[in-house]
């Protein structure tokens, strides 16, 4: 597979880069730290990682400090979920990790390996909208739309776990997403009104 990633061009180049990366770590890693026996350290330079996003495996090389959000948006061009506060305080970057909502801005990409990562791009199968997205449209669940991908993901996670939530359950599940336009009432309506064979 060849991800849409200007940084990793082909498998051959990928392996070349990976080889050089680990060599550089061995040579240039902090001597004091690397000297400890039995400690398998990678970085601080770019290291090869594998992420499973929306069911598809992506190979990329990132420094250990790169967040999941930045890896997904900047390297893989999946720009659906947004980078807003970048401090785990707004919810615009909400992705699902093994079915649970997380703030992708506050999780290192290297730590998301082996997890089932889902972004808002996983929902719609063009031309049809996902039932949650459809409900957001029908119930005016958005104004400027910047928080919407995160709220849609949080709603999706809620409905997959609790197909018929009470208003209270919905409020609690969407607690971690902020909307500056103040669409909360409409978002709640959309969450409670989502219809469709597969609600989440």
């Amino acid at each position: 597979m060849a991800p849409k990633d200007g940084f990793s061009v082909s498998r051959r180049d990928f392996f070349k880069t990976a080889g050089v990366g680990s060599l550089a770590t061995g040579l240039l890693g902090p001597v004091e730290l690397g000297a400890q026996a039995g400690v398998r350290e990678v970085g601080p330079g770019a290291v090869p990682i594998q992420l499973t996003i929306n069911g598809r495996r992506h190979d990329l090389t990132v420094e250990p400090r790169v967040t999941l959000l930045d890896a997904v948006r900047n390297r893989l061009d999946l720009t659906g979920v947004k980078r807003v506060c970048d401090r785990g305080a707004c919810g615009a970057c909400t992705m699902l990790l093994d079915g649970r909502t997380v703030y992708a801005c506050s999780i290192l990409a290297i730590e998301a390996q082996g997890r089932d990562i889902r972004t808002v791009e996983s929902l719609a199968a063009a031309p049809a909208l996902h039932p949650v997205e459809q409900a957001f449209c029908e119930h005016d669940g958005l104004m400027c739309g910047f928080c919407t991908p995160g709220l849609v993901m949080a709603t999706t996670a809620l409905l997959e776990k609790t197909p018929n939530p009470t208003a209270d359950e919905a409020r609690r599940a969407l607690d971690g997403n902020i909307c500056r336009c103040g669409t909360y009432v409409k978002v709640l309506e959309a969450a409670l009104a989502t219809k469709g064979g597969r609600r989440g």
Binding site: L33, Q36, G38, V39, E41, V42, G43, P44, I110
Partner: peptide, 26 residues
């Protein structure tokens, strides 16, 4: 964020071995 090296400790022993005595460095 300043760059840093990363150790994925499989267990407690590996985690302790990878930590250090200087506050804040690891």
């Amino acid at each position: 964020m300043k760059s840093f090296a990363y150790v994925d400790a499989a267990n407690e022993q590996e985690a302790i071995a990878a930590l250090g005595t200087q506050r804040g460095r690891i």
